[in-house]
Design a protein around this nucleic acid. Structure first.
Lengths: 127, 127
DNA sequence: GGCGTACTACGAGGGTTATCGTACGAGGGA
DNA sequence: TCCCTCGTACGATAACCCTCGTAGTACGCC
């Protein structure tokens, strides 16, 4: 589909470590999801159909703290991160999570939405 | 729903505080479930159809630590605790959790079972 | 090559948590 | 009544986690 766009070179050389599917631990995933900031990131990622850069997801914390949360999410296997130029794109590892823990991610997202509705607030959930 | 319960002496006088259904927070539940000891307790409780005393669930930690974990589970709304004589009976708050977070508990239990199978071990899961 | 943007690494601080040991209250049985 | 079991409270400790600021690296663009 790209006429002569300089084929988006993914990882420019820097590689990021991700746990293999089999190495993803339920406890780690639950722990990652139990943090409000990280849950917000996951919900935003789930709402968008595309990858998002770290800076696309605004969190009410500092830059370094944001980096920390993204790292936690990556290291526990919840998201996939790849470098694209100066940006780092993030995507949910839906297939892996659904294969390992069927229905878990969906029920968490649903629960988060429901809780927001009950709290009378609007948070990251919807698109 | 028990037809003939021989001894229904409920709380002996000491009352325990539980959060109302509406006060249960998803993040707290996920956090509670992210601890291996507490997850084991929840799985054991889910496997048994009846209430279990604290001492019925053996954990590889000291008694005071066990008390701590049960307290966390109760305060975040995952389990219900009532005194019965010298024992304290524990039960999952399935109805509340299912009403608030449909499918969440089941998917967590399923995920935990699946993970155990993959790890080649048999843990608390059961039913 | 120079500049700006995006993200990281490091070190630090403040709060929370998991763990333990010990001493103590509550209830049931002999 | 005495004693045993069950669970609790308290104090202590070490580890963890979230947060931040600053300095630094990698990349794209001009």
């Amino acid at each position: 589909m790209q006429p002569q766009t300089p084929a988006p070179p993914p990882s420019t050389g820097r590689a990021l470590e991700h746990p293999a599917r089999g190495a993803i631990r339920l406890e780690d995933v639950l722990h990652a999801l139990s943090d409000p900031m990280r849950l917000r990131v996951v919900r935003t990622l789930a709402g968008e159909a595309r990858e998002l850069a770290c800076s696309d997801i605004e969190l009410p914390v500092s830059k370094s703290t944001t980096t920390h949360h993204f790292r936690v999410l990556r290291e526990c296997g919840v998201i996939n991160q790849i470098y694209r130029g100066t940006a780092k794109m993030n995507a949910l590892r839906r297939e892996d999570l659904d294969a390992l823990f069927p229905g878990l991610l969906d029920s968490v997202l649903l629960a988060a939405d429901g809780q927001d509705l009950r709290s009378g607030g609007s948070a990251g959930g919807g698109g």
